[in-house]
């Protein structure tokens, strides 16, 4: 019994992990683009980017999932996106906005003197970014990023509102058969995943401890 429940839940957890990994794959670089937009010297661009970030961070992710999935069909009569695709698109946009703010904090947190020291040593702006600033930014953003990654693992549960068969959905399906414990059992999967993430981030933080 335990074995077959575990296998069913694992099936759902694969979907959870796929959503997690695809979100990171696209949201990490997109967040950097958005953060550059939010720091742009071009005022209209900055205003547009900041408004988008405000809307995305200011509304529930669950609502965004429903809007992306049902919205195009209801408003414009377009065909629905596949459920999983809609979920990935929503998560990428949502998390890219959060990442962009973390990046921005990290970039602006590097003292201006670092950039100036690079300039007076005749470095180009891209040399300064890659050789001087980047690693200092990474060091600064590791702890808040660890938080976001862990939150993302758990946020994936929200996609059940558009019936993506992730692990919570699978766990709930046992209730119809009179079993409540498989739903509680799903917690173990989340805990293991987040335990691994915690260890990885701890290791990475230590790796970067050689400088201050």
């Amino acid at each position: 019994m335990l074995m077959s429940v575990t296998l069913t839940l694992l099936e759902g957890f694969v979907v959870t992990l796929e959503l997690f990994l695809l979100t990171l794959l696209f949201a990490l670089p997109l967040g950097l683009v958005i953060s550059f937009g939010s720091m742009s010297r071009c005022t209209p661009l900055r205003a547009v980017v900041k408004t988008i970030v405000w809307i995305v961070r200011g509304t529930p992710l669950m609502l965004q999932i429903m809007v992306v999935f049902y919205g195009p069909g209801l408003m414009f009569g377009l065909p629905l996106l596949p459920r999983f695709t809609a979920a990935v698109v929503t998560f990428v946009i949502n998390y890219a906005c959060y990442f962009s703010e973390i990046y921005r904090g990290g970039i602006q947190g590097v003292p201006a003197g670092q950039q100036e020291a690079g300039l007076v040593l005749g470095m180009t702006r891209s040399q300064i970014f890659f050789k001087v600033t980047l690693l200092q930014v990474i060091k600064r953003i590791v702890p808040p990023m660890g938080n976001e990654f862990i939150t993302l693992v758990k946020d994936t549960a929200l996609v059940r509102v558009i019936s993506v068969y992730e692990i919570i959905w699978m766990g709930e399906s046992f209730i119809k058969k009179g079993m409540i414990w498989p739903l509680f059992y799903t917690a173990v999967f989340y805990l293991v995943a987040n335990g691994i993430l915690t260890l990885l981030f701890g290791w990475f933080e230590k790796k970067l401890n050689y400088f201050k």
Binding site: A117, L119, V120, V132, L135
Partner: peptide, 17 residues
């Protein structure tokens, strides 16, 4: 042109890494 000049800052600004 900057290379004609060197600058030592009050706050050192060494690269920490």
């Amino acid at each position: 042109k900057r290379l004609h000049f060197g600058l030592v800052f009050q706050s050192f600004n060494l690269f920490p890494q």
